[in-house]
Design a binder for these strands. Structure first.
Lengths: 94, 94
DNA sequence: GCCCTATCTTGACATACTTCGAAACAGTGC
DNA sequence: GCACTGTTTCGAAGTATGTCAAGATAGGGC
């Protein structure tokens, strides 16, 4: 792992390194698509705070979103998860 | 993923969420054992700083260490990596 | 044994980043 | 216009990062 690769990948792990974001990502990954209004009630946090965490997941490339009428829908980016998974798996099997 | 599971797992991702620690973990994982004195030269950081990052990896349960004479040897905890990997892989394959 | 050096960790500190809520803003539909 | 859903901005409190100095532990020379 060289410096550039670490700088590219670390933000993804960092994004998952918060309990709230980890749960958000898990909820989004559990379905094909998830509306923000379905996520917010599961947390004792304000709307802006959830929105902030979603933005970090978005900027890390782990999720993507689209506004469709009144609601905003989020979905997981499977390729990103896959690359992290294989990265962890190689040394784990040694 | 319930709240307790997230609180247990997030610190591991957080530990990997720093470029320096990600590279440290990768270097340690690449060999059966690694001496701290082999890690430090690869970074433009002081010894105490490296030691600090290694402590975080240790507290996250990702690596373990042992003093053997003058040197301290670190090794990876494969089970921890494996659990993170499978966690990511399930939704990634959907 | 005693001192000296080398290796690594710990403690104290300054700086920078995170987290979160309140208020303001933007987009959509009636 | 008005109500509703999310996002952005701003500020306060907490947490992380990195350096310096000091401490702990081991080995070698005398």
């Amino acid at each position: 792992m060289d410096e550039a690769a670490a700088a590219r990948i670390a933000p993804m792990f960092k994004a998952l390194g918060d309990p709230v974001r980890l749960r958000l990502a898990a909820m989004i990954a559990a379905q094909a698509e998830t509306c923000v209004c379905d996520l917010t009630p599961h947390f004792a946090l304000s709307g802006p705070t959830i929105s902030h965490h979603l933005k970090i997941l978005r900027e890390a490339g782990l999720v993507d979103c689209e506004r469709r009428g009144t609601w905003v829908h989020y979905w997981i980016q499977p390729a990103a998860l896959q690359s992290l998974s294989t990265l962890l798996q190689a040394p784990a099997q040694r």
